[in-house]
Measured scan of single mutants.
Amino acid sequence: EADPRLIESLSQMLSMGFSDEGGWLTRLLQTKNYDIGAALDTIQY
């Protein structure tokens, strides 16, 4: 079963217009401990 923190973070990022095609966003959020800010910083640079 998916981590509730992942579901919450992923749904927030999907609502911002990101896609999780191929699961890349799920993996990114997992490596950033479900921190949306850290994930966005990684995507920006």
Rank of each mutant, 00 (worst) to 15 (best):
E21F: 08
W24A: 04
N33I: 05
A2P: 13
L25N: 00
L10G: 00
L25E: 01
L6D: 01
I43C: 10
Q12W: 10
G23T: 01
L14H: 07
Y45S: 15
S19T: 14
L6P: 04
E1T: 13
A38Y: 07
D20L: 03
G22Y: 08
T42K: 09
I43P: 02
Q30D: 06
W24P: 00
D3I: 06
A39R: 00
L14F: 13
S19A: 07
F18S: 00
T26R: 07
Q44W: 15
Q12L: 12
G17W: 03
I36D: 00
A39K: 02
L29G: 00
L25R: 00
F18V: 03
Y45L: 15
P4V: 11
I36Y: 04
Q30E: 14
D3F: 05
L25T: 02
D20W: 03
F18G: 00
E8F: 12
G37Y: 14
I36N: 01
L10H: 02
L40D: 02
D20F: 02
Y34D: 00
G22F: 09
S9Y: 06
R5S: 07
L28T: 02
Q30W: 07
F18T: 01
T26Q: 06
P4A: 13
R27F: 08
N33G: 12
E8L: 10
Q44P: 08
D20G: 02
Q44T: 10
M13P: 00
E8D: 12
S11F: 13
G37C: 09
S11G: 13
Q44F: 15
L25V: 06
P4Q: 14
G23C: 07
K32P: 01
S9A: 13
K32C: 10
R5N: 08
R5I: 09
S15H: 10
G17A: 01
S15A: 10
A38D: 07
S15D: 07
L25F: 01
L10M: 08
D41V: 13
I7P: 05
G17E: 02
D3M: 05
L40I: 12
L25C: 09
R5T: 06
Y45P: 06
E1F: 13
T42Y: 15
E8G: 05
L10V: 07
G37Q: 15
K32S: 15
Q12Y: 13
T31H: 08
L25P: 01
L25S: 00
R5V: 06
Q44S: 13
T31N: 15
I36A: 06
E1R: 05
A39Q: 01
D20H: 01
P4C: 05
E8Q: 09
D35C: 09
G23Q: 07
W24H: 06
N33P: 02
E1H: 12
E8R: 08
S15V: 11
M16F: 08
D41R: 13
I43M: 08
K32E: 12
T42W: 15
T31E: 15
N33L: 11
T42S: 11
E1L: 12
S9L: 06
L28S: 00
P4S: 12
Y34K: 03
P4K: 13
E8S: 07
D3S: 07
S9M: 09
S9R: 03
L10E: 00
E21L: 08
Y34E: 02
S19C: 10
L14Q: 06
L29Y: 01
G17S: 01
Y45F: 14
G22A: 07
G17H: 02
L29V: 02
L28A: 01
Q30L: 12
A38E: 11
D3H: 08
Q12T: 13
D35S: 10
Q12A: 14
W24F: 05
T31D: 15
Y34M: 06
R5A: 09
A39L: 08
G17R: 00
S11C: 10
G17L: 03
E21K: 09
Q12I: 15
L14N: 06
N33K: 07
E8K: 13
W24D: 04
G17K: 04
I7V: 13
T42E: 15
W24C: 07
W24M: 05
S19N: 15
D3R: 05
D35K: 04
Y45K: 10
W24Q: 05
S19L: 09
T26G: 06
F18Q: 01
I43Y: 05
Q44K: 14
A38K: 11
D35W: 05
D35L: 05
M13Q: 00
T42Q: 14
L40V: 07
Q44R: 14
L6G: 03
D20R: 00
I7S: 11
G23W: 05
I36L: 07
D3G: 05
F18I: 06
M13D: 00
P4W: 12
T31K: 13
R5P: 05
S11D: 10
N33Q: 11
Q12S: 11
R27E: 13
D3K: 04
T26M: 05
A2H: 12
A38N: 05
Q44D: 11
L29K: 00
K32N: 11
A2K: 15
Q30N: 09
S15R: 11
L40E: 01
Y34L: 04
Y45A: 14
S11I: 13
W24S: 05
Y45H: 14
F18H: 04
L29P: 01
P4M: 11
F18P: 00
S11L: 14
S9V: 12
A2D: 14
E21S: 09
Y45N: 15
D35G: 03
S9I: 08
I7A: 11
L29T: 02
M13F: 08
S15Q: 12
D20Y: 02
I7E: 13
M16G: 02
W24G: 03
E1Q: 13
E1M: 11
G23S: 06
E1G: 13
S9K: 06
Q12H: 11
S15M: 12
I43K: 02
L25A: 01
D41H: 14
D35N: 12
Y45V: 10
I43T: 02
S9W: 08
I36F: 03
A38G: 08
S9P: 05
L14I: 11
L29F: 02
L6S: 04
L10K: 03
I7H: 09
P4G: 10
G23P: 00
D41F: 15
D35E: 09
I7L: 13
L25I: 07
R5M: 09
I36S: 03
S19H: 13
E1D: 13
A38M: 11
A38C: 06
E1C: 11
S11K: 14
E21A: 10
Y45E: 14
K32G: 06
R5Q: 10
